[in-house]
Write a protein that binds this DNA or RNA. Sequence first.
DNA 1: ACGGTTTTTGCTGCAGTGCAACATCAAAAT
DNA 2: ATTTTGATGTTGCACTGCAGCAAAAACCGT
Lengths: 162, 162
Amino acid sequence: MTSKAQTVFPAPDHDHGSCTSTALAHAERLCAARAQRLTQMRRQVLEALLTSHKPLGAYEIIDRLGAKRRPAPITIYRALDFLRENGLVHRIESRNSFVACVHSHAGNDPVVFLICERCGAVGEAPGGAAADSLKASCRAAGFTPKSPVIEITGICSHCRQH
Amino acid sequence: MTSKAQTVFPAPDHDHGSCTSTALAHAERLCAARAQRLTQMRRQVLEALLTSHKPLGAYEIIDRLGAKRRPAPITIYRALDFLRENGLVHRIESRNSFVACVHSHAGNDPVVFLICERCGAVGEAPGGAAADSLKASCRAAGFTPKSPVIEITGICSHCRQH
DNA sequence: ACGGTTTTTGCTGCAGTGCAACATCAAAAT
DNA sequence: ATTTTGATGTTGCACTGCAGCAAAAACCGT
């Protein structure tokens, strides 16, 4: 079961470097396939999110690539918009912050974000099962759903053990 | 089925006045029972949310009670904190705004917010069924959940018909 | 009614979020 | 080569949300 939990919450000591470069390579392939441009700026923003492995706010992102010249907030938001449109980044609504997406999402099943209060890590759990009952609730209310947001705060498996 | 949908999305032409005063009376009873003080400020903020029947941001709330003297944002947030702690108001995370709660929530089942993109109305659907599968997802990830946030954007029953 | 305590509100200031409008510059299409 | 599109830079602004302190109001025991 530990192995299963790790697919959602990577161990704190896992190989950041390799998972970052894997994700970057995937982003490049995906953009190439779609004729979308993964520019310097966009790549840097994605990279900042990948290496932090936690949700970051716009200003935190600026701080992390601010060595040379600090881009304005709007620049970050535009890069984030692009990355979100291409499914490379998610927005955490309850935190006004953003995380890099590590999976390839199966179909358009909604994702459940598990947000650790202690360490700030965010895991993505499959939401297929919950989606069915949510759709039923929507139907009962005569509501036509578009994008479901499911965010759960709590304590992650690693923090739990201490 | 229309009657069922109306329990989640009240008809645009329903009797605001009576549902507002009912909710206010309920708030008063609840605060009295808990020895909590429903002060002028708090009451006014709740009233603004009830009469609007849509989510409002802090500044919008200020505008609605600003006739006489405009309270500072912090005053509004404090009133909102109080109202939320007592379950009279919910925060819509994906909008940074707040709605008055119209039901008595059964137990601590999570609520599903259905947010209409067209008219801005927010309905509260029961989330008991979805909660079970979400809890299962959490367990599988070794995650101990606290407060689930479920918000779904889409088109409500009334807007659908036009 | 009095003073003391607690709660609530007012006030100032600040950091972060997020967008609009416009200018500039580079790449792609014609 | 020219036009069109897209990306970034710049300025400015409005909203969100809280910290810290001071003043005012409500509560309570005597």
